[in-house]
Amino acid sequence: MSVENIYATLEKLERMHKSLLELSFKKTELLKTNNTEALDQMLKDEQAHVAAIDKLEQQRQLLVTEYLGAKGFAPADKMTVADVIKVADNDTDKEKLEKVRNRLLLIIDDLRKQNDLNQKLIFQSLQFVNLTLDMLRPQPGQINYSGNEVRGTNTIAKKTYFDSQA
Rank of each mutant, 00 (worst) to 15 (best):
K26Y: 08
D83P: 00
D89H: 08
D134Y: 10
N115M: 09
N130G: 05
K55P: 03
L133C: 05
L121A: 05
T36R: 07
N35R: 12
A76E: 14
D45V: 07
N5F: 03
I85R: 08
F123L: 13
V87Q: 11
K96V: 02
T28C: 06
D91R: 04
T28I: 03
Y67P: 03
M42G: 02
D54K: 15
T153C: 00
G147K: 11
E66K: 13
V3Y: 04
I85P: 00
Y145P: 02
Q139E: 15
R151Q: 03
D45L: 11
D163G: 11
L121G: 05
Q114M: 09
Q119P: 02
E4M: 13
K32F: 05
Q124E: 13
S146E: 13
S24V: 06
Y145W: 09
Q41T: 10
D45M: 11
K44G: 03
Q114W: 01
F123R: 09
R103F: 00
K27G: 11
T80L: 15
Q58K: 15
V81S: 04
T80N: 10
Y145F: 11
S24F: 02
Q61K: 15
T155I: 07
L56M: 12
L30H: 09
D83S: 14
V87E: 14
N144D: 15
T92S: 12
E149P: 00
H49V: 01
D116V: 14
D91V: 08
I108P: 00
T36E: 11
A82D: 11
V150C: 04
L30A: 14
N35K: 14
G69R: 12
A88V: 00
E11Y: 04
Q47P: 00
S24R: 01
K96A: 04
A166P: 01
N154A: 07
K18G: 05
N102F: 08
K78T: 15
E98G: 05
P140G: 09
A74W: 01
L104M: 04
E57I: 01
A48F: 10
K86Q: 15
A82L: 13
A52P: 02
V100N: 02
V64D: 06
Q142K: 09
N144S: 11
N5H: 05
I108H: 03
K27E: 15
K27R: 13
E57S: 15
A48W: 07
E22P: 02
D134R: 12
L104K: 01
Y7L: 13
G152Y: 02
F25S: 10
K99A: 12
N102I: 08
L133F: 09
I108G: 05
D77T: 13
I143R: 02
S19A: 15
A76Y: 03
L13K: 06
H49G: 09
R137W: 04
Q127R: 12
L106F: 10
A166F: 12
P140V: 07
N34L: 14
D83T: 06
S164L: 06
R137I: 06
V150S: 10
E11F: 01
K32V: 06
F128P: 01
K18A: 03
V3L: 05
K96L: 08
M135V: 09
Q59P: 01
Q142S: 15
K12S: 14
L111V: 06
Q142P: 05
L136I: 08
L43Q: 13
K99W: 00
S24A: 13
K99V: 12
E37N: 13
D110I: 00
M42V: 03
T33K: 12
K113S: 09
A8N: 14
K96G: 01
V129R: 06
I6K: 00
F123M: 12
